[in-house]
Design a protein around this nucleic acid. Sequence first.
DNA 1: GATCAATCAGTACAATTGTATCGATTGGTC
DNA 2: GACCAATCGATACAATTGTACTGATTGATC
Lengths: 218, 218
Amino acid sequence: MDKRSTKKSLSVQTLRRLPNYLNYLKGLDASKDEYISASALAAQLRLNEVQVRKDLAAVSPTKGKPRAGFEIRQLIIGLEEHLGYNSIDEAILVGAGKLGRALLSYEGFKNAGLNIVAAFDTNPDLQNKSLDGKFVFPLDRLVNLSQRMKIHIGIITVPAEAAQEVCDLLVEGGVLAIWNFAPVVLQVPEHVYLRNENMAASLALISQHLQEKFTEEA
Amino acid sequence: MDKRSTKKSLSVQTLRRLPNYLNYLKGLDASKDEYISASALAAQLRLNEVQVRKDLAAVSPTKGKPRAGFEIRQLIIGLEEHLGYNSIDEAILVGAGKLGRALLSYEGFKNAGLNIVAAFDTNPDLQNKSLDGKFVFPLDRLVNLSQRMKIHIGIITVPAEAAQEVCDLLVEGGVLAIWNFAPVVLQVPEHVYLRNENMAASLALISQHLQEKFTEEA
DNA sequence: GATCAATCAGTACAATTGTATCGATTGGTC
DNA sequence: GACCAATCGATACAATTGTACTGATTGATC
């Protein structure tokens, strides 16, 4: 099979692990080791060894060498390819509040193929100047600019009340995916991919874990 | 083997969905309807109907009435209980940068049972004054304060380079769970629960979806 | 170059999760 | 009061995911 354009659709769970592999591998001293074993990776990331090996086998363009492991550089290439980090996606962000600004300057995105090209906000004090390196436009420019720049991703970091309205604007602006940080359920057309970043869900997992721990001890 | 196989432990996936139910239900006009059907909820949240019914059956203190649905108020009570929103957990946050500040003022936490009682930062300009309602201490006070206040949760919002160091301090301070927003793999002792908030993972899912869409059309 | 240890690769299996289907229950309507 | 439609509850089934095991391959060591 063609290895470059094969979009072997990986499972969602696998895909969630890939950024961690990539992250860790990039953090290694490149001059130190040329190979890394699935076992070592699993130990470092606290994952099941076989699982890691399967994941690596799925994304690595080259096979792993017994006794040595996988070639780190090839792994990185494979990971980035499967993660779509090569084809940079351009995004616009709506809501230059604290969370919005945090995302605008979030380190992780630089390497992840996401390029936030502009921000939007209703607050006149923030408009028409740069914030964290991104220019902030008034909201009424959104649809026009988005269409002209052929933006694919819209990021929503506005308060819950305004989220649906912003969402509609983004859809009108022609985005294909919406990354929603507001704690509301948004309604989008069928063809638009909606991804909710739900802090509360993570918090729930932590919370349950602590509760279980306490009831356990009691 | 499985040490936390307790009574009513819901699956991780279920637990992830619960905040969404709660969120939606709270957003409803309480005076409008007293009951809601699993079908209606499923349609609104774009989930499978049976799945929603199962989830609701698991968390609702009362049974659902055929033809009517589940009693909304009871559902909310049940959800909050399972999510641990009643037993408020106290947390400290390290790293009062943009992301840290975003979390300090995040609306959602108020209702989610998480109380961030203090923040820490190495930057002297931020220290010893309030930021978004939370007092910012120098980092060297962390261990002492954490121990004395018996804090359970530590939130890390520092740059990647400093994350492990902060993590160690939190562990020394006796926290039981760490919520890590830095894009690195942290090493923690066995008894500490580590939860990584991985923005890049979500991004990967969006990215893949877009890529699939494009290759599909081509 | 023979042996050994570490690692990869493939298969089989178990657990979890999501989906479909069927009967049971209830409130509204005539 | 009998019927109908909507919904719940339970069971069974399919798909996915995680784990265990066995054999094959390779590099290092002597």
